[in-house]
Design a protein around this nucleic acid. Sequence first.
DNA 1: ATCCTATGCATAGGATAACGAGGTATTAGA
DNA 2: TCTAATACCTCGTTATCCTATGCATAGGAT
Lengths: 103, 103
Amino acid sequence: MNFKGTLPTLILEALERESNHGYRIAQRIKERSQGVLDFKEGTLYPALHKLENEGLVESFEGIEKGRPRRYYRITESGHGMLAKDRAEWRTLSRAVTLILGEA
Amino acid sequence: MNFKGTLPTLILEALERESNHGYRIAQRIKERSQGVLDFKEGTLYPALHKLENEGLVESFEGIEKGRPRRYYRITESGHGMLAKDRAEWRTLSRAVTLILGEA
DNA sequence: ATCCTATGCATAGGATAACGAGGTATTAGA
DNA sequence: TCTAATACCTCGTTATCCTATGCATAGGAT
């Protein structure tokens, strides 16, 4: 089960405190949502590349367990975008909840 | 500003108490969300036709101010779907709010 | 020793949702 | 008379997500 349009925001949130690599970001989203949100790899990696193209995240190479990993870190503009996205999420979710009934 | 994937649910909700025609449904969604949600006609009518194809709403012809209008009413299965959609909305919005922070 | 699962990254093809732009037509008011 | 609002509709484009697939390695089970 997933929520269209929220993935970029959730990725930025995942990178807010610490840099991470793609696979771990996806796991983190799943865990933090208690298994509800589960974005697939075919969705995650293109989204990550897009965020990088837009300058909202940067990637660098790291090594974990002797093997190369592609790590991502959030940029300045990424922090700004996250703040906007959070505000937008609140506005929209309140609007829908207003109509469908209290959560 | 809009929320991908919520339109069918919002349409069903709009028809829950009273039948209505397309244009009025869109206005209702906008009003009830205090102007936040604003689905365009190019989105609304195809969504309405799809719901009809799926048997979740039925249409009939009515007359308002001497001119024909296409009215929609929610069906039995439409009510069932609305209940499911409401539950799903709560699950998903809670999951996202859990990650992004309280509304 | 081999197989499966999980990890980890990536792309291709298809479905769906929404948007903008355009078309048609009527009514009410300036 | 012209414009805005009402009312319905379709088409082409873009974005998002999914499934399927490919490649590769590590660790545990058989």
